[in-house]
């Protein structure tokens, strides 16, 4: 465990150093991070300018969902996505050989192989948004809400990670996966809206198939003291199942690795 922790810290330092290797890029990335956060809020502000509630969610509650969206997206774009894009590239070029030659778990090694350090600002922005939303509601969240909300945030990140691993594992068979990662990114964008905005089939899809509700709506509801225990437990169990499935698929996928030509 200590070995893996040390490894993550070294990778974090190296990614930060790599990010700073190109000075102009580093500055532009920083400015972009702030701009993207502002743009994320824009549709919500426009929507609530005309009405006080959408599908039972008032403005401040919807802001909590957006905050979770920003938080999960920060982890997605800061760690998961760069690492898995890196994985797809390594599989295509055959450089994944060097991952398999290392005496550590390949999934663990590749999952933290790249970081985008600027995304920490998105995470801080998400936190600021939660504080603002509760300030607008007139009081802080309850201790239980805070604890379950924090737990479900981690759970949401893990669910999203499992979906991405499933997607990345496909790269061992189909090699070119760029479009699938873009598609998943676009689908994840749905998570900025509370799940109740969707009806019928879409709500089922976004709850059970691509569980974006698990990533943002349910954690937000927990923080707002609006989530029943049964849904909370089902959310945790669903993510655990997803993680197990993703691990099994990953292990099967690695067996299919044929390594690109010398």
């Amino acid at each position: 465990m200590v070995r893996y922790l040390r490894l993550v810290l070294v990778q974090l330092r190296i990614s930060a150093a790599a990010g700073m290797a190109y000075r102009a890029d580093f500055i532009i990335e920083g400015v972009m991070a702030v701009a993207w956060m502002a743009l994320t809020l824009l549709p919500l502000l426009v929507l609530y300018d005309q009405r006080s509630a959408v599908a039972g969610w008032d403005r401040s509650s919807a802001l909590v969902v957006i905050a979770y969206f920003l938080g999960v997206r920060a982890v997605l774009e800061g760690v998961v996505s760069p690492s898995l894009v890196d994985l797809v590239e390594r599989i295509r070029s055959g450089a994944f050989d060097y991952v398999l030659l290392k005496p550590v778990d390949a999934q663990a090694l590749i999952s933290a192989s790249r970081f985008e350090p600027w995304k920490i600002f998105d995470l801080l922005g998400a936190l600021a948004l939660v504080i603002y939303a509760f300030h607008a509601r007139g009081g802080p969240p309850s201790a239980t809400g805070l604890a379950v909300g924090a737990l479900l945030f981690v759970n949401g990140v893990l669910a999203m990670y499992a979906v991405w691993i499933l997607c990345a594992a496909a790269a061992f068979w189909v090699v070119r996966l760029d479009n699938l990662t873009y598609l998943l990114g676009a689908i994840f964008d749905v998570a900025r809206w509370p799940i109740h905005v969707f009806r019928g089939l879409w709500r089922m899809v976004f709850t059970f198939v691509i569980p974006v509700a698990v990533m943002t709506t349910f954690p937000a509801m927990a923080l707002l003291d609006d989530l029943d225990a049964r849904t909370a437990i089902a959310t945790l169990a669903g993510t655990a199942a997803l993680l197990v499935v993703s691990r099994l698929v990953w292990r099967t996928a690695i067996r299919s690795y044929t390594s690109a030509s010398s």
């Binding site: 190296i14 150093a17 790599a18 290797a21 190109y22 070029s93 055959g94 450089a95 050989d97 060097y98 030659l101 010398s262």
Partner: peptide, 13 residues
Amino acid sequence: LVMGQKSQLIWDL
């Protein structure tokens, strides 16, 4: 395993 045509060095660092 050293492969003359593949690299494990981090390109930018």
